[in-house]
């Protein structure tokens, strides 16, 4: 027998701090698998966000920089411009990317910055304990929308992929989900393609990953995946928004 599935080399042995059943861990592994398969661990530099994944620099074997809240695309820009031959990715949540860092992500995308962003959308703020995110669903109860998100009071969920795909510099935009095996495999393919798009120097690439937050949603991990499928996907349709036919 041969080993057909094990921890990828790009992921360190360190036990991750995420809550049981949180899909952050899956996304981390997928990124690491992609780094392994592309053989780029030695030239990859990751940028960690502020949010639950703030210290994921401890989990990846590549060089890592921790950025201020929302600023990862600017920090990644600085890194990439110094080392254009390196592979640079940011890992950002919905508060980081879609609220405080809206300007940075839009402009990095619009500049066609040759970086890859992995955007974790779980419709809630995890780190600060369950506040409303820009991506919180209408009616969803959070600690800062205790009576449910009301559009007239809080505005509407922000569809990042749809928005970014209107920008010329963003060449590969795809939304994937963690809610079942098939979709996890799709997610890995998308992340791989996003990295390849960067390596081919084509421009900015982003993969939005619908993820679960069992703790702040108050749903057990298995049912949290169902919640993604039933509640999130109608608001955030899966699929490719741009760059589907890019040959890389």
């Amino acid at each position: 027998m041969a080993i057909v599935f094990q921890r990828p080399h790009a992921l360190r042995e360190t036990q991750m701090h995420y809550c049981p059943g949180c899909t952050h861990g899956i996304v981390h592994r997928l990124i690491a698998e992609v780094i392994d398969e592309l053989g780029v661990e030695g030239r990859t530099i990751g940028v960690s966000p502020v949010g639950c994944a703030y210290n994921n620099y401890l989990y990846f074997n590549c060089d890592m920089v921790q950025a201020a809240h929302g600023r990862a695309p600017a920090v990644a820009t600085g890194i990439k411009r110094v080392h254009p031959d390196n592979v640079v990715f940011t890992y950002q949540g919905d508060g980081d990317l879609a609220a405080i860092g809206t300007a940075e992500i839009i402009h990095a995308a619009n500049r066609g910055e040759k970086i890859t962003t992995i955007f974790i959308n779980n419709a809630i703020y995890g780190m600060t304990s369950g506040q409303m995110a820009p991506t919180t669903l209408v009616g969803q109860v959070t600690t800062t929308s205790p009576f449910g998100r009301k559009p007239e009071l809080h505005g509407y969920p922000l569809n990042v992929c749809e928005m970014l795909s209107t920008l010329k510099g963003a060449v590969y935009v795809e939304r994937v989900s963690m809610h079942d095996i098939k979709n996890i495999k799709n997610a890995k393919n998308a992340i791989k393609k996003a990295f390849k798009v960067q390596m081919a120097g084509l421009g900015f690439s982003i993969v939005e990953v619908l993820s679960s937050c069992p703790t702040n949603w108050g749903i057990d991990p298995v049912n949290a995946l169902k919640w993604i499928e039933e509640k999130m996907i109608p608001q955030y349709p899966l699929g490719n928004f741009k760059g589907k036919d890019l040959e890389v």
Binding site: H24, R29, I181
Partner: peptide, 13 residues
């Protein structure tokens, strides 16, 4: 192994 968030599982075949 694919869905495990914590890399607990190794698969041989």
């Amino acid at each position: 192994a694919t869905i495990c968030p914590d890399c607990v599982i190794t698969v041989e075949k």
